[in-house]
């Protein structure tokens, strides 16, 4: 009897302990997985734009709506959604404007391709002009193309000396 009680006691203690450990373990798992930190939330919110404001990144947007969207990201993270999935969720629900850059599809390619194309054209144009200029200036070696040289009133001996100094410097 006494022994049996002791046995029972042991068993109860064992289950109680097991229960406590399990609950504790469960809550720690819960705490780790289910409440992502602010930093984890902001890391994703930073890449998104407030769907209703003008040009405000979601991580710094002070409106109540944005606070709730950040909480939504937290919930989604705790449900195990990946960063890409969360971003896709926002795009599906609020359109491509929530992304910091237009997605690389269709007409949007223009935003990526046009500036480099124009810059390249400009560079090519500039270098062709350079070549033309230098060639033609070598062709006409006479003073014809030169503008007349008048010494300016400010250009006294000192500057000429400074010029020489600068040219011959070590």
């Amino acid at each position: 009897m006494n022994f049996a009680f002791g046995k029972n006691y042991l068993r109860i203690t064992f289950y109680a302990l097991l229960f406590t450990i399990l609950t504790f373990a469960a809550t720690t798992v819960f705490a780790q997985d289910d409440t992502p930190t602010d930093d984890e939330v902001n890391a994703i919110a930073k890449q998104l734009y407030c769907p209703v404001c003008e040009n405000t990144p979601l991580d710094v947007c002070p409106t109540e709506a944005c606070r709730q969207w950040r909480e939504l990201i937290r919930t989604q993270l705790s449900q195990g959604m990946t960063e890409a999935e969360i971003k896709q969720y926002f795009v599906d629900n609020y359109g491509a404007r929530v992304l910091a850059e237009p997605p690389r599809t269709g007409l949007n390619w223009l935003v990526y391709l046009l500036p480099p194309a124009i810059i390249l054209l400009g560079a090519v144009f500039l270098f062709r002009s350079f070549r033309e200029w230098t060639r033609s200036s070598q062709a006409e070696t006479g003073p014809g193309g030169e503008r007349s040289e008048t010494s300016s009133p400010s250009k006294d001996d000192y500057v000429a000396r400074l010029e020489e100094e600068l040219k011959n410097r070590k």
């Binding site: 040009n55 910091a100 850059e101 237009p102 223009l110 935003v111």
Partner: peptide, 20 residues
Amino acid sequence: IFPLISELFTGAKVTVGPPF
């Protein structure tokens, strides 16, 4: 200008942000 063009031609609003 691009977001305006996008909205005008496709109706879709886009954001051109700092990464670009």
